[in-house]
């Protein structure tokens, strides 16, 4: 009887692997806030076109205040990301001045190996420029945010590999700037957000048409928010696609190995009652 439990575990994993996430769909408070992301699930991967659009939004609407100190220019051209060409990235990097104590004058034009320069010299300066609020760095912001979840739903998330709470949070926050409901006071320099249910120091950063997309994607706040959320997820984990693809091979290998070992074990034990 107890001998069955590893098999049950293996079976549960197989179910988690091959049952589409939709089959395990479940309803709860936060369900509606979850978005469909191309990088969700076992076979998820980033959509380069979406990341390129998201980068455009980031550059035009976020980068003036928010840094991304762990992002290197070279990341923008590597496989599994926005996949800009190396030439584009070289030109982009050269537009930025990089602090470098080793060169005369203390700064030089950027190269692809450089990391994204911060828009402010230090936290104090950043606060002063933003009426006292510190705009957080975007390097891993998509991993530092999540939708709240309750027992026992997070157990289901283990099987669907839901890891997109960050982009879900960012998307919902960006599209839910609204007029404050009655009874909520909004001070000057504060902006009510219906998703967080609080006043934020950040003014609504996106408006319809503010970023011009090439190609057919709609120039709407909803689309901008979706694209920039995906982009920020990529910034937080540029190697996600590789990780998942390797993982799939590893799981297949382990299933094969476990199967063989089970046969070996059974053959050895067949002769002895136990």
């Amino acid at each position: 009887m107890t001998g069955k439990f590893p098999l049950i575990g293996a079976l549960a994993l197989v179910v988690g692997l091959f049952l589409p996430a939709s089959a395990l769909a479940y309803k709860h408070d936060f369900d509606a806030k979850r978005q469909d992301w191309s990088f969700a699930g076992v076979f998820g991967k980033y959509d380069p076109a979406q990341l390129q659009r998201g980068f455009q939004v980031f550059l035009q609407s976020c980068a003036a205040c928010h840094g991304a100190r762990l992002l290197a220019f070279r990341n923008l051209s590597q496989p599994g990301g926005p996949e800009f060409t190396e030439g584009q990235i070289k030109a982009l990097a050269a537009e930025y001045m990089i602090l470098d104590e080793e060169v005369e004058g203390g700064e030089r034009a950027g190269i692809p190996a450089d990391r994204w320069p911060s828009p402010f010299a230090n936290a104090l300066e950043a606060k002063q420029a933003n009426s006292g609020a510190l705009p957080p760095d975007f390097s891993v912001i998509a991993k530092a945010r999540a939708l709240p979840n309750t027992f026992p739903w997070w157990i289901v998330d283990y099987f669907t590999t839901y890891q997109e709470g960050g982009p879900d949070y960012i998307y919902n926050m960006l599209v839910n700037y609204a007029d404050a409901p009655d009874g909520v006071e909004v001070d000057a320099g504060q902006f009510y957000n219906a998703f967080t249910g609080t006043n934020l120091a950040m003014p609504p950063p996106l408006f319809d048409g503010v970023v011009e997309y090439e190609g057919g994607a709609p120039a709407t706040v909803d689309q901008y928010a979706r694209d920039v959320s995906a982009f920020l997820m990529w910034v937080a984990e540029p190697g996600l696609t590789d990780r998942k693809q390797l993982g799939f091979k590893v799981i297949l290998f382990l299933l094969l190995f476990a199967g063989l070992l089970y046969l070996v074990k059974r053959r050895i034990w067949r002769q002895v009652p136990h």
Partner: peptide
């Protein structure tokens, strides 16, 4: 069976 399992183990 033993050889195959051993080989898979070595690869792993």
């Amino acid at each position: 069976l033993y050889i195959a399992t051993g080989a898979v183990g070595v690869v792993g």
